[in-house]
């Protein structure tokens, strides 16, 4: 437990360091998850809106398997089934590729544990666009 939280904090720090490169969303600082209140207010910023969907247990629930910056300041507990979502812009130069991974992870790895959010209609196409925008900000 201890170990993983330090790990996540480290990731947060890494993300902060690189924060200069990423464009920060308006309503929340880099490395911070939008609060419940912000989410309830139907945020217009795609990064903020995407963050809300990503961390909603009934929607993306991405933290069940991935750690990412900002989680350490919430009560959400990150799983470690998937790799940490860091330096996404550097690693996903092509936005389409990132979206495709979220839409159907089994295309790249048929045995993937990651749910096929688009193919199985777990999320709407719009939600997937927003989550993609959010993920690129990490």
């Amino acid at each position: 437990m201890r170990k993983s939280s330090t790990f996540i904090t480290t990731l947060g720090a890494v993300a902060l360091m690189m924060g200069g490169m990423a464009t920060a969303p308006q309503a929340v600082a880099v490395g911070e998850m939008p609060s419940k209140k912000v989410c309830k207010s139907k945020p217009k910023d795609p990064v903020v809106a995407g963050g809300c969907i990503a961390t909603d247990r009934k929607k993306g629930n991405c933290m069940a398997c991935h750690s990412f910056a900002g989680l350490e300041k919430t009560r959400l507990q990150a799983g470690n089934v998937g790799p940490p979502l860091v330096a996404m812009k550097q690693r996903f130069k092509d936005k389409k590729k990132l979206r495709a991974q979220i839409w159907d992870a089994t295309k790249a790895n048929p045995q993937s544990m990651m749910p096929p959010f688009g193919r199985h209609k777990i999320l709407s196409e719009k939600d997937i666009d927003l989550i993609t925008a959010w993920a690129l900000s990490l």
């Binding site: 069940a64 507990q77 799983g79 470690n80 544990m113």
Partner: peptide
């Protein structure tokens, strides 16, 4: 694999064994 979330038993209890899904 089954269900909307597309998991097999093996996903969680073979490949995923020893890992955490959230706090579990």
């Amino acid at each position: 694999k089954r269900g909307q979330l597309n998991f097999s038993c093996a996903n969680c209890h073979i490949g995923g064994s020893g890992k955490r899904v959230g706090g579990n």
